[in-house]
Nucleic acid binder design. Structure first.
Lengths: 147, 147
DNA sequence: CTACGAATTCAAGCCGACTTGAGGTCAAGC
DNA sequence: GCTTGACCTCAAGTCGGCTTGAATTCGTAG
């Protein structure tokens, strides 16, 4: 059984030990045993951490990520819920695309103030329309934080 | 001179007065005068706030957004720097696409544990390759919260 | 056998982005 | 002219996601 020492996991992923312990503390990953004090992980943890990194980049909280990919084999989220997440990401991709185009335009446009440039305003309108189409966000249920 | 009362701005954008004051405090937007105590804004602030919302969705911090689109007409960021941001967003889009595909696969795949599914692993590998090119600090976008 | 260095625990701290609460001010409507 | 309600200020609080620091425990190299 080749398990991975926490140090190896950190070296392989670039994640700090403290972060890894934190992930374990909140139940996002699990260490399988100890070597002395040192946590040992199954190699699969590397894939899980990759997944977690993906989720973070996509803007999901650790709690949401835990919900999407439960540590155990149970899917943890209903099929429709997962598809909803996928749709959310699609929307995010469209917005990012608009932002990217806007930035490229800003880099190219000679207008003195971008707010005066028609092309710029058009790009903003694109985003505005998408924003309008999406469902209303939670009415301050638990949180609205953005790190 | 038709200025917008803070209340109107909030109504138009869904942003809370407290958040708007915070944005002003950190120099992201500027109020132009007061009506009694009430802040008055130029109509352009609505576009600026749209821009800010875009940036937040894209995962940029308020500081970064302020750097990209300074309140005044000066571009605040060099042309290459802006293009670099655009390239970063392109990468982010690719990662989001991979995550979305992974989620859709998870919704469809019958394997007992996704870590055992070859398709799933292949998707992860796609992301892994991209991630290696440059580690990106994850930043959680704010969810729009209504009062 | 001892020293070393990496990992451990636990509590506390930090940053970003706001929100909340207490106490105050104001212009508009009756 | 008084009430009302939205806004004001300022300090403090919150939440997520870690990091840092102090004191400690190991396994391994020498």
């Amino acid at each position: 059984m080749k398990f991975l020492d926490i140090g190896e996991v950190c070296a392989a992923t670039g994640i700090k030990p403290s972060a890894l312990r934190y992930y374990e503390e909140i139940g996002l990953v699990a260490s399988i045993s100890r070597h002395g004090l040192r946590r040992q992980f199954e190699p699969d943890v590397l894939l899980q951490l990759k997944l977690i990194a993906m989720g973070r980049i996509a803007g999901f909280s650790l709690a949401e990520i835990g919900g999407m990919f439960g540590r155990d084999q149970t899917p943890a989220l209903s099929r429709p819920a997962i598809l909803q997440k996928a749709a959310d990401i699609d929307r995010q991709i469209r917005e990012l695309t608009a932002l990217r185009d806007t930035l490229r335009h800003v880099a190219a446009c000679p207008a003195p103030s971008h707010l005066e440039c028609p092309t710029f305003r058009r790009l903003l309108d694109v985003v505005a329309k998408q924003g309008r189409s999406r469902a209303r966000k939670p009415r301050r249920p638990a949180k609205a934080a953005l790190p």
